[in-house]
């Protein structure tokens, strides 16, 4: 019985980690848009390449934040949560 419970915990943690990383779609689209617009801007004004590139990198880094929150949650679910939940389960039995 305990094995099944621990198995369910491990499986659900892995599923949750996978589901959390769906958030990676958002930053992907957002950064793609940002880079596309930066390319357009450089094409229109090649002399402003340096400024556009630094601003684009900053914007990409900030747009990446939501994806990184998802990554942190996925990492917590894979490496930290199973041990925690199994401890809780064993202590309640």
């Amino acid at each position: 019985m305990l094995e099944i419970a621990i198995g369910i915990i491990l499986g659900c943690c892995a599923l949750g980690a996978g589901a959390a990383m769906i958030a990676g779609i958002g930053p992907g689209i957002g950064e793609g848009n940002a880079v596309a617009k930066a390319c357009e801007a450089i094409g229109r004004q090649p002399e402003s390449k340096g400024d556009v590139t630094t601003t684009m990198l900053m914007g990409c880094a900030i747009a990446e934040t939501t994806g990184l929150y998802a990554l942190v949650i996925a990492i917590l679910l894979i490496f930290v949560a199973p041990g925690l939940f199994v401890d809780i389960l064993i202590s309640t039995i």
Binding site: A61, E64, T65, L68, Y69, L71, V72, I75
Partner: peptide
């Protein structure tokens, strides 16, 4: 989180 997540990932 930004710095840590990027390096760790």
């Amino acid at each position: 989180f930004r710095h840590y997540g990027n390096v760790l990932s």
